[in-house]
Design a protein around this nucleic acid. Structure first.
Length: 180
DNA sequence: GCGACAG
DNA sequence: ATCTTGTCGC
């Protein structure tokens, strides 16, 4: 269990969460090196970011592991916006695996909006974090989706919440925030 | 000036 | 993110 201190500020998520993520990877390396993943799906963005360097990039550089940014909402950057036009494109996504590029005003493709499975309406926003191409990132993410949220992220979410629930209900030292 | 804009 | 209310599908 960790206690977050830095506040959440859009565009600065890495400064709040990456230290704990790096620590988790380090602890795994020390305790169960055989379980070290070949790639990490990060709950947040990679290069789809104000300065082209979101939490998925930070974690990749700090650990040397391939990382993929998987965001649930579109971060408004480089002219990208969740407006009517964007929503129309989402409507055009038919089956799971369908996607369309997220091209900023600068002409750069910052990521892809992905319909993660057949029965999902709201897309996932995939972007390169570290040591991976965008196409690979999108395909791998799609293959991890039993539901809208890719299973690795979903399980981390479910299990961390459960852990916090069981830890917080009993008397003990107070803690602020929670992290996976 | 305020709100929006990963979690 | 968190919280709350209501609905739909398996």
């Amino acid at each position: 269990m960790v206690s977050l201190t830095a506040p959440y500020v859009s565009g600065f998520l890495a400064f709040r969460e990456v230290p704990f993520l790096v620590d988790a990877v380090r602890r795994l390396q020390a305790k169960e090196p055989g379980l070290m993943p070949q790639v990490i799906l990060v709950d947040g963005n990679g290069v789809l970011h104000h300065r082209g360097f979101g939490v998925a990039c930070h974690l990749g550089v700090l650990t040397g592991l391939p990382c993929i940014g998987v965001a649930k909402k579109l971060l408004h950057v480089d002219g990208l916006k969740n407006n009517a036009l964007h929503k129309e494109k989402i409507q055009l996504l038919q089956a799971g695996g369908d996607s369309f590029p997220l091209t900023g005003s600068s002409g750069t493709v910052l990521g892809m909006a992905l319909r993660s499975h057949d029965h999902s309406t709201k897309p996932l926003y995939i972007s390169v974090g570290h040591k991976t191409g965008l196409e690979t990132a999108v395909r791998l993410t799609h293959r991890c989706c039993r539901f809208r949220i890719p299973e690795p992220v979903r399980q981390a979410d479910i299990r961390s919440r459960e852990h916090v629930r069981k830890t917080l209900e009993l008397p003990g030292p107070p803690a602020l925030g929670r992290e996976r």
